[in-house]
């Protein structure tokens, strides 16, 4: 018998393709390393940071380029982007203001400043990935979606900051897990700047690859009592191995329920 995935998944997120022609070089490099590793046994991922702009979106891009089904969220009360000074941030609403609108509004305000600090580049990347930043707290888990995760649930939530992990775990606790569905919530601590986001994105992709590899191994394992096991019991092991390879990105994990 061949190993057929129980639920056929779309081969690639359309958003990923849109992004691909912008960052051709960056992407080719990633593809070369991890070509399609998510494809044949895709765990579904969700990346979370404060504003759903920098770290979670970099990871979103990187994971979707490797064919992983992925969605992303922010846990803040609003989207906050740096402004002309530290006390004048640009604030936008979650779920309604699109990346495109933010891009245009910043370009209008001060194209030189926002080009120089990288915001325009980031928003340009983001608007090719999805429509608008989404707020974690407003996510209706399990409601079907139009993007890569059509059934609206994921297997692994990756947060990019300990505070976000706290909020996510706390929020899931308060939701009282109406779906009864298992989810691993992992934090990878990434500093909120462009360079660190790139490093963190690579780390998250590697973690996704390692988890998927472990899942594949477990599924093909035939134990004495049970066959086709799942990755759940391997997560501590995989995470520890990953942490040894990425000591600069402190990890945290818990088993929660949607």
């Amino acid at each position: 018998m061949m190993q057929t995935p129980p639920q056929p998944r779309p081969t690639a997120a359309p958003a990923a393709e849109a992004a691909a022609d912008v960052q051709q070089k960056h992407d080719d490099e990633l593809r070369g390393q991890n070509g399609g590793s998510g494809k044949d046994f895709p765990l579904k991922f969700c990346t979370v940071c404060a504003s759903n702009q920098n770290r979670s979106m970099e990871a979103h891009l990187v994971l979707s380029l490797s064919q992983y089904p992925v969605i992303s969220f922010g846990t803040g009360s609003a989207v906050r982007l740096p402004g002309p000074s530290i006390d004048k941030p640009n604030i936008y609403a979650f779920n309604s203001t699109t990346y495109d609108e933010m891009y245009n509004s910043l370009k209008e305000k001060d194209p030189r400043l926002y080009h120089a600090n990288g915001l325009l580049g980031m928003l340009d990347r983001n608007r090719r990935i999805k429509g608008c930043p989404e707020r974690w707290q407003d996510w209706k888990v399990g409601v079907p979606r139009k993007d890569g995760v059509e059934d609206g649930v994921v297997d692994v939530v990756v947060t990019c900051e300990e505070r976000c992990w706290d909020i996510v775990v706390d929020d899931l606790t308060n939701r009282n897990s109406p779906l009864n569905r298992l989810v691993h919530i992992i934090n990878i601590d990434i500093k909120d700047n462009h360079e660190e986001a790139l490093v963190g994105g690579k780390g998250i992709l590697e973690l996704a690859n390692m988890l998927s590899e472990a899942a594949r191994e477990e599924r093909e394992k035939a134990g004495p009592n049970f066959i086709r096991e799942t990755v759940d019991g391997r997560v501590p092991d995989v995470l520890a191995k990953w942490q040894e390879r990425f000591p600069g990105l402190p990890a945290l994990w818990t088993v929660g329920y949607f």
Binding site: S177, N180, L182, G223, N225, F226, E229, T230, V231, D232, G233, V255, Y257
Partner: peptide, 13 residues
């Protein structure tokens, strides 16, 4: 006695 993944679901049950 089950595999870890199943036991996690049992805990929820």
């Amino acid at each position: 006695t089950g595999p870890v993944g199943v036991r996690l679901c049992c805990i929820k049950f």
